[in-house]
């Protein structure tokens, strides 16, 4: 399964980068969302994919069954998802405020610090 996911990750990265290179600020936001998904999936896949054995320990047991999914990348990605949301909200509002002031959807018109 990892090879297939590798292509999915590559595709997501390509789409994200392409959108982030556009001049339209709205497209930049879309690119950001795609980028965070791509990065999360990259970390998740890199640790190896396992079906149907979540990192949970059965009641009364000391250790999970062998071959359990790696919990560490899951913990990393979990916080990353939530933080990505916070950062996205920040970026969206920043862009919105910039738009209110500059009244332009073109990043090229936002390159001066004077308004």
């Amino acid at each position: 399964m990892e090879p297939l996911m590798a292509y999915v990750v590559g595709g997501l990265y390509a789409a994200a980068i392409y959108m982030m290179l556009r001049r339209s600020i709205v497209k930049l936001v879309i690119g950001l969302i795609l980028l965070s998904n791509a990065a999360n999936l990259l970390i998740f896949t890199a640790a190896g994919l396992v079906r149907g054995t979540p990192p949970l320990i059965a009641e009364g047991a000391q250790v999970p069954p062998p071959g359990v999914a790696d919990p560490l990348p899951q913990a990393l990605v979990l916080t990353a998802i939530v933080i990505a949301f916070g950062v996205l909200a920040f970026a969206v509002v920043l862009i919105h405020r910039a738009y209110e002031i500059v009244k332009a959807d073109d990043l090229d018109q936002m390159k001066s610090t004077d308004t």
Binding site: L56, L78, T79, V82
Partner: peptide
């Protein structure tokens, strides 16, 4: 702490 869930998910 024992099953899927926790502060992040609960908060969301």
């Amino acid at each position: 702490h024992d099953l899927p869930g926790g502060g992040f998910i609960g908060g969301l």
